[in-house]
Write a protein that binds this DNA or RNA. Structure first.
Lengths: 193, 193
DNA sequence: CCACAAAAACTAATAACATTAGTTTTAGAT
DNA sequence: ATCTAAAACTAATGTTATTAGTTTTTGTGG
């Protein structure tokens, strides 16, 4: 009743993460994962429902780890410093797990419930940071969207080699974060009075 | 000496763009393009060097059209209004050609010269807008990076369904642009004195 | 008007991949 | 020791990219 052990969904996803970070998300194929686990690719179907589910699990794991990293960085910090720490944690995560980060927006079905919940947790976390700046309700949500746009765009451009020139990327990031903070009052003025 | 006409690289790329915009960049396969053109897929190799080159051409076309749209929007406008117009043009392009926009950062080789040149044209265009705010040199480059990060992140999040909540996206965009403008002095203070 | 050259189409074949069906192995429970 | 169900396997199908080699086509030069 309890046959062979060792293999399960987590192990498959972990192997996929390693491949993604080492060779890029495009290199994550069932064939490649199976090879890494010393197994034939149809065997994976005993634990996971095909490539689609593997990709969904990667998106989920990416969102959860990203959220955890941001939450950890935010611990006990608020205001400008909290924003800086959360931003750096976001970019650090994308740098340290580039393949996994790629999966963040590549879910086969972005409307999937679990994906939505994981994303909501991030929104909520950032919203708490925004509350220190007097932002609530729609103003807060718009600000969170701006924040995510900025950080996701930066992470993607950096990961994909979109910044051509040899100019310090950390400097770019620090300035961008400070500029974002300077712009925050706009959201308050426009919506919270 | 001048055999069959009708087919050439441009036509292949145009078909690929239609498929990308209608079904997503992932659906752009040589098989699919060939089918659309009423031809067998090996025939495409007479005009284009495989899927890799097709993808590169898509990236190139995306960057060139994006640049053209931004340049057109900028015509005769500067300062806050110039920034707004360029930003809207960027997002409009991503909305109207979602599949082509996907290709912007998905070049097989981001270091390719032509890709670099096309990206540089965009950087230059945005830099000119930044000059109205008194930004030069490195300050200008950092600001351009922040601007691209913000717009690319917004475009990607919107395209991929990353913004879950039913909150007006145009409002988010307008606020984000204004907040960016508000933050611009940061770049000047930090680097141009 | 015809033949030729070369471009551009074609067919055939190979290799990688995802997935399904059906079979065999295995290890814990009885 | 046997049975059972999970989990591995092999075999097969269909899709894709790509290469090799063949045939078709058509403007040009004779």
């Amino acid at each position: 009743m309890t046959p062979r052990i060792g293999m399960d969904k987590q192990i498959i996803v972990a192997a996929a993460v390693e491949i993604a970070d080492a060779e890029g998300l495009e290199s994550v194929t069932l064939a490649r994962v199976a090879e890494k686990l010393g197994v034939r690719s149809p065997s994976l179907y005993n634990h996971i429902n095909g490539l689609q589910e593997l990709r969904m699990q990667l998106t989920l794991l990416a969102l959860n780890r990203l959220q955890a990293a941001m939450a950890d960085a935010a611990q006990g910090h608020a205001g400008e410093e909290g924003l800086r720490r959360v931003s750096r944690a976001y970019v650090s995560f994308a740098r340290m797990q580039p393949g996994l980060y790629e999966a963040v927006l590549r879910s086969p079905d972005p409307a999937e419930q679990q994906v939505g919940e994981a994303a909501s947790a991030i929104v909520k976390l950032v919203q708490e940071q925004m509350s220190c700046f007097g932002l609530e309700g729609d103003a807060s949500l718009h600000a969170v969207r701006g924040f995510r746009s900025m950080l996701h765009g930066f992470a993607e451009l950096e990961r994909a080699g979109g910044f051509g020139l040899p100019l310090d990327l950390n400097k770019t990031l620090e300035l961008m974060i400070e500029a974002f903070g300077r712009g925050l009052p706009v959201y308050k003025e426009a919506l919270n009075g």
